[in-house]
Structure formats: structure tokens, C-alpha cells
Design a protein around this nucleic acid. Structure first.
Lengths: 207, 207
DNA sequence: GTCTATATCCAGATAGAC
DNA sequence: GTCTATCTGGATATAGAC
């Protein structure tokens, strides 16, 4: 019966998602190498053997998570760039949304941490390295382009656009890491602090 | 002969330093768990067995490096706070010096990366966790104090001081990580981009 | 002090029963 | 699909020769 098969497929997908989410938490807090396959299976309440019915190795889980991390991030960047907003509003909007996401969604911070860890690490699967090579620079490029536009319009401060984009993502990633680490004692950050790096302050009293 | 003994001690110390520096490079690029003891001994051109004459475990090496990382960072913060400068100059000075250090000294970036990795990781030795608990917040406190002083003097922007300190170190750490990862293609960052987060721009034309 | 060889342990992955 | 038991490999740490 195809009905039953479909249901089974869906259950399998759900189980996969559950494993992935568990693994994300563990990879973010311990790293790939220090996370044992038994840690994942225990945290997901399944036996070690069963895990291999869903994924063929620890590395496969890791690579899948990396793919998802970049899909989400780069899709958001693509979306941002396509919005019909003036460039300075795009920057402000991006900062507000990114900070809100970090505060509200622990997994979002974990994805950033995963990317940061992996980008900094030689000891990840080759496939993950390829993904980083392909996908890593896109967010930097998008922000640099928006900044350049804004500079032409006179609404964004005239620092070098590539350097500004680097500072943009360094600050966001730095905050994401802080947030992932200090889940409990995390202080929400006023987005305007970050905005003031990039935006000309037309209204001084907004601060 | 005490002369010979002294010389031997010095040679031993040098060898220890060499091992530590090698391990720092490897830990920064692969993480603690993924760095094998043989990787360290190979990179330091000694046998695996010999390494155990200098350190009793991989963890001991790691903890020693963590201690050094915080000693350097916190000593610099203590020094900065004690300088007879107005607070806004302290912030500008700190940003210039930190960025210069990151550009010129790969090990400095690696120490930051080590701290960031470790703070984010559950899978480090308990002793290292203790060090982090004791030492981690000090740099944030110093910067927050300086910012508060500057706000009273009217030379530093009036965002929440703790949040500003968090952004300060997030940006620095984010850049340090980027620098440690992209040794080759690293773009030097104009310190004024970061200064503009904190300092009231009295002279608009300085930018 | 330095090396090579070895003991021990533990994690990843597989096999086979239910 | 799910579990338990087992195989295998590799990494840490030690022992012992030089």
C-alpha cells in the first residue's frame, strides 16, 4: 500500500530531523571530533546501531548540517538583496533580524557556531570543506554590494566596503558565538550599536 | 656542576616552548579533540615518546596554552586601564593595537581562536573550564568601565556599556577568527570602522 | 634524553537476533 | 525497525633499550 509507505517515509524523515537537531546541539557545544556517535544516539534516545539506519557515518550527519546552515544563511542573503528597500534600510533590517534570530532561536546561533568552527578547522570531512569553499563568501559579497550602493546614495558611511562587510559578519558571528556559549546569561544587544558602524546618523536623537 | 644543570634547564624550557607553539598552531586549526599527540610530536620533530618527557598529557599542553592566552590578554587589559589617557583614547588605542597585533602576529590570532573554541566547548579539561570561569569576563569588565568613564566625559557614545563591551569583543574575536582562518587572504581592517561604534565623531573629516 | 615497540583502551562501524 | 554483541582500527600512554 502506497499510503503506508508514504507514512513510513514521513516518519523516517521526522526521525532523521530529530537526529540532525540533536547532533547540531552536540556538534555546536563539543565540536565534530569530540562528539561521539554514542552521544548522539543517547541524546536522541535510540541505540547506536539504529543510527546507522538513518545515516551512514558521523561525517554524513555533519555534512548535512553544514549544507542546511549555508542554505538558510545564503537564502536569507539572496532574499535581502532582492527586497525593494533602500540600501541603508536593508542593512538596518538585516541587523535587527539577525539579532532577533540569535536571541529567539538557539539553533540559529548554533548554525553560526557550526560554520565558524568548521571554517576554522582543518579536521572536517573534505565534502564539508568543499561546501565552505563554495558558499562561505556569498554573505560577505552581498553585504559589500549593499554597502557600496548605500555609499553612492550617501546613506552609508564611506569606509572600504569589503572591510565593512568583514566587520559586519565578524560582529554578528562573534555575537552568535557568545550567544551559543552563554545561553543563560546572554544579554540582548541593542541593534543600533551595530547600525552606528555603517549608517550615517541623520537623526542624532534616534540613539 | 650547576652551570651545566642550568643550561640543561634552559634547553628543556626551550624545547617546551617549541612544543607549546607547535601545539597552539595545531589546536587552533583542528581543535583539541581532533589533534593527535602524534601530530604534535611529528610537527615538533620529536618522537611521540619524548613528548611525554615534557608534558604528561595532551590536556596538560592545552591547559598551559589556555593559561598563557588569558595571562597575555588580561595583563594587556590591566595595563590599558592603568594608562594615564582619557577613556576615548584608551578605546581607540586598544582597537589600533589589537588589530595591529592580529595582522602582524599569527599566534595572537590563534590564542583568540583557542579561547573562542574553548569557551564554546564542553569537551575541554575541567581545569581549562575553571580558567575560563575565572578569567573570561575580565576583559569585558575593563572595556565596560572605560566606556562608562568616557560616557561621563561625553566622548563615548551613550549605548549601554555592557552591550558595547560585548560588541567590542565580539567584533575583535570575530576578526581574530577570520584572520586565523584566512591567513593568506586576510584583509587588513581599518581601525576607524570599529572606532566609529564607540567614539563620538568630533572631527567628521577624520574619517 | 631519545627512540622503538607494545599494552590498553575506546570509538566507529557491522552483524545478527528479535 | 530496533536492539545487543562483536569486530576492527586507531590513539594514548607506558616500558624498556640505547
Amino acid at each position: 500500500m502506497p499510503k503506508n509507505k508514504e507514512l513510513n517515509e514521513k516518519l523516517k524523515d521526522e526521525r532523521r530531523e530529530q537526529i540532525l537537531s540533536t547532533a547540531l546541539m552536540l556538534f555546536a557545544s563539543r565540536g565534530l571530533a569530540a562528539t561521539r556517535i554514542t552521544d548522539i544516539s543517547k541524546a536522541a534516545n535510540i541505540s547506536q546501531g539504529l543510527l546507522y539506519h538513518y545515516f551512514s557515518s558521523k561525517e554524513e550527519i555533519f555534512v548535512k548540517l553544514m549544507e542546511t546552515a549555508f542554505e538558510k544563511l545564503n537564502e536569507a542573503c539572496r532574499w535581502l538583496e532582492a527586497q525593494p528597500m533602500p540600501p541603508d534600510e536593508k542593512i538596518r533590517f538585516a541587523i535587527y533580524e539577525l539579532l532577533k534570530l540569535l536571541e529567539e532561536n538557539p539553533n540559529a546561533a548554533r548554525y553560526h557556531l557550526l560554520i565558524a568552527q568548521s571554517a576554522a578547522s582543518d579536521s572536517i570531512p573534505d565534502e564539508a570543506k568543499d561546501i565552505i569553499r563554495r558558499e562561505y563568501t556569498y554573505p560577505y559579497e552581498v553585504i559589500a554590494r549593499i554597502i557600496t550602493e548605500g555609499q553612492e546614495a550617501g546613506t552609508i558611511k564611506k569606509h572600504d566596503a569589503n572591510q565593512s562587510a568583514l566587520v559586519f559578519w565578524s560582529a554578528i558571528k562573534g555575537l552568535a558565538i557568545y550567544r551559543a556559549v552563554h545561553q543563560d546569561t546572554f544579554i540582548a544587544t541593542n541593534p543600533e550599536i551595530l547600525c552606528s558602524i555603517f549608517l550615517e546618523d541623520i537623526k542624532k536623537d534616534m540613539l
